[in-house]
Design a protein around this nucleic acid. Structure first.
Lengths: 118, 118, 118, 118
DNA sequence: GTGGTCTAGACCACA
DNA sequence: GTGGTCTAGACCACT
């Protein structure tokens, strides 16, 4: 995994994990890699992974069992919502950004189709 | 103008000015407010505005005449491009963000239309 | 290092670093001194060094790893080009300056040889 | 006459006048345009031209007769030297700049010839 | 400890 | 009055 320059690494890792969870690459209730293990794999500082897990926990996406590791929650609804919320946020932001440029949603959709075809 | 917390103020001012320029709120060849004037208006430090003007100049959107002020370039093509580039960046980022969530452009467009109707 | 009066300090530091990098006094991929460290050494404000690093980054000569420091790029081609560009700029300026005085390149070269022998 | 961006206008005008004087476009003892006249012609602020004349006077290249105007000195030696001094300064600076890049005068001359041929 | 940003306030050259 | 540079010192996010 390569990291983009202008976005905090911990956020990039968080997003990747959220994707994996929402797409069930990691099963509900499944165990995440240990912070140390993941840090080695991604070549980042263990503190950075710690922060990722801490933030995911505060979003109720994972939980920690002392001495056991970190696990994905089993509540299907929560998992269901992760993807929806992320997508919704992105779409809303997109509409706002375009309207700031005086570009209507219809025009925006037209641009989307054009760029998609390239 | 109120500033978001997570984005550097100078970038937010830059974006606002780019919008104003691309929408011709500020005429091609027109003069921007002086650094001090804009700083007072936005309640930021003159240095921050200075940086904005410097970066806009390095993007060839404005130019400065020593002791005279800072002006929008007169080249219509460049101005045309500002808006296009900004819009393009937004659309590309949108497609990328959605595809990271395993959402196809078609689905994305569907969501766009739904949210628009709300 | 002593600074000339008429040239911005940050430009003088930039040029010195470019020299050091192009002459491989600082290795490709190597780490620059931290902003604070260099600021102390040169007896300038950390902000001034910060600006130097920012501008070098915008010229793709160095890059920064968040919280880690600032590093010389590893692309040998880019490094090759720094020296060539700097030298080329100097030569072109020289020719232009001399021709403004109605001195042909041939005469210029003659003067060069004379002065060199002194 | 168009002005370069990074060099003070008054210096650019000074250099142009020195050239004209050293190349005898303006005769020894001849009269310069009035500050006002030159300012209009160059589309610059009269203060700027004033400064040019003041600096030229302090270099003993011109002198002012109250109510009469500004004139080029008649001393041929001084005029002779203007060109030589300017050229010499340029050559010395060139050698210094190149040696900073670890480029010997011989290599510098080779580059000069190459660029000249382009 | 690292760079990034920001404020406050100063001085300068230029027009 | 204009932008450009610099210092001093602070706070922040990231590693």
């Amino acid at each position: 995994m390569e990291f983009k320059k202008n976005i905090p690494i911990y956020l990039q890792i968080m997003d990747k994990l959220k994707q994996d969870i929402s797409l069930k690459v990691i099963e509900p209730g499944g165990k995440l890699m240990s912070t140390r293990e993941l840090a080695v794999k991604l070549k980042v500082n263990p503190n950075t992974v710690s922060r990722v897990y801490r933030e995911l926990e505060s979003e109720n996406i994972v939980f920690t069992k002392r001495g056991m590791g970190t696990f994905v929650v089993e509540d299907e609804n929560i998992l269901q919502n992760i993807k929806n919320n992320m997508a919704n946020d992105i779409v809303v932001k997109f509409i706002r950004d375009m309207s700031n440029l005086n570009i209507s949603p219809e025009e925006a959709i037209k641009m989307l189709k054009e760029i998609e075809e390239e």
